[in-house]
Design a binder for these strands. Sequence first.
DNA 1: GTGCTCCTGACCAAAAAGGTCAGGAAAGTC
DNA 2: GACTTTCCTGACCTTTTTGGTCAGGAGCAC
Lengths: 161, 161
Amino acid sequence: MRVSAKADYAVRAAAELAAAGEGPVKGEKLAEAQDIPLQFLEHILLELKHHGIIRARRGAKGGYWLARPADEVTIADLVRAVEGPIADVQSTPPEAIKYSGNSESLRDVWVAVRASLRSVLEEVTLADLVAHELPPVVEELTSQPDAWHSSTSTKEMVEGR
Amino acid sequence: MRVSAKADYAVRAAAELAAAGEGPVKGEKLAEAQDIPLQFLEHILLELKHHGIIRARRGAKGGYWLARPADEVTIADLVRAVEGPIADVQSTPPEAIKYSGNSESLRDVWVAVRASLRSVLEEVTLADLVAHELPPVVEELTSQPDAWHSSTSTKEMVEGR
DNA sequence: GTGCTCCTGACCAAAAAGGTCAGGAAAGTC
DNA sequence: GACTTTCCTGACCTTTTTGGTCAGGAGCAC
């Protein structure tokens, strides 16, 4: 349940494109702006292009730009482009797994996990990101103080930390 | 953003323990009940023991049992025990990451992602699982039909599938 | 002491993560 | 047309993670 460097980079680079607006932006500029290894970033941008999220042109005045308006590109789009399906269990979509007996309901739990991830990732757009105005669902989640610290694990509780 | 086999196995084995109630259950029985490779499962159970989630005894009448009542063990406890922190970004807790300029708000998004995961994983207990009675938050998420199919990706939309 | 069962570390193969390198192919400029 | 710029692509690489197996030791019950 972790977010890869690739996904993080993809979102950050796309945010730069969203902020830039129209004109094509060079890969090098994106890499510098967000401190991402250039050659690695180029592979990521290529994937985004293959997924129809961005466009590109080569040569002197070349660069990358968003294929759609920034308010029509969600974080989920970017994460899926580089990481594949969100919240697969053992590389299988949760609804396709067969559980027996006492763990039958576990399928519903994983489906709920996926749904809750989507409720965040599919709501936030690049436009929201660069405007620093996140949708209500995010504001609500981040406004709780608990959300801001790594939770105390069971082990730590047992050991009385 | 995927759930590992280990986490899935951990929850399923723990569900068996929850269903068994008091007496110690042998590893072999857990493995058979949930169709998990025995030797792999033993390593997982050992981790759970180290995290204080289960207890064990060796010998003739040995086996594993829950260290706490089933309604005090959450899915989050189990996932954290075997996978570590939930929703780290690049192996770092989201609140600890420094973002610059146009992606400053991304930190809040990852924090919201973690919070939304917790809102599911920390609510569901083993008791809920084996009783097939999941908390309202889960019921609500799974009751939406959209939650039950893998979402159509941007690429597929572009290609008109 | 003799099974039975958990405990532990070593090992292993395949995949994923996170990159780097080398060159080719378009687009613009002179 | 040559040259430069910038994206495009595949091959390659190292380290870590994933998903296990194997061999033996240690504690418990009888």
